[in-house]
Design a protein around this nucleic acid. Sequence first.
DNA 1: TGATCTGCCGATTTACATTCTGCATAGTGG
DNA 2: CCACTATGCAGAATGTAAATCGGCAGATCA
Lengths: 144, 144
Amino acid sequence: MDEVDRHLLALLQQDATTPYAALGQAVGLSAGATHDRVRKLRERGVIRRTTVEVDPAALGRGVLAFVMVDSSRWVGDSGDRFAAIPEIQEAHVIAGSASVLVKVRTATTEQLQDVLRRLYAIDGVSGTQATVVLETFFERPVAP
Amino acid sequence: MDEVDRHLLALLQQDATTPYAALGQAVGLSAGATHDRVRKLRERGVIRRTTVEVDPAALGRGVLAFVMVDSSRWVGDSGDRFAAIPEIQEAHVIAGSASVLVKVRTATTEQLQDVLRRLYAIDGVSGTQATVVLETFFERPVAP
DNA sequence: TGATCTGCCGATTTACATTCTGCATAGTGG
DNA sequence: CCACTATGCAGAATGTAAATCGGCAGATCA
């Protein structure tokens, strides 16, 4: 994990379709050596996968909200229960008064309400506090 | 945006390196037709870009926190100020008592504290409330 | 100094993206 | 009811890039 690797990661985050020849030129390596570097980054798990970024609005997911989930019981093993709700994009166990923080994308606020209903159905969930996003400044990859 | 498009998006989110021939087989189309579909999804902006998912821990960003930022002034135009802090991965204007919600990744809690310091330096920011993530259940793409 | 390992280059081979032609279907307007 | 045009797909072509390989140079260690 040297400076070249970090540079490659940054370039790939911007556009993972960039040919190895162009990547190599940017970092001062041949296409073959660049290919090696990226392959090793994948093997080591630094690069988890290659994916496409999809516009949430185009998928009918124009409403974004963060929900603090309170619990009356241990929910540290209930990851699957949260994963079963497809509108939930992220779920984190947190330190503090609430227990779990989830990121939710729905088409409408009515559907958001329905997600809250399904959250309450999870064993141990005793309350929710939803915060609706009015405007997203930015969402970007982790800077290498 | 029919069922085939949604299926293609799901497949590409899983692995954007899948050849068009394989994608086509999965959705019941030829490679050429699949290529057309994906090209149009890109042109329409449904697919924003192709990127790589990087393990935050491998980049020395093992600490994840969400920070509620309170403000005494209008901060709806201060997106650039937040973007100038590289540890901030997301920034959203929210409805509720706080004004902005940011997602922060740092190597240590000391660095998290330093980010809070830089947040306070933004005009109008009057307070912060940080919530540290203990465990991430999952982070996944928006389900098509 | 000799041996081994690592990283890189350059070329080869293979695979895939991309483009093109032609066809079928579904709308559109006379 | 019949041309006319759009659109979407298949199948084959062409081009380009991915993936693989052999060999070399520098580093590390015995």
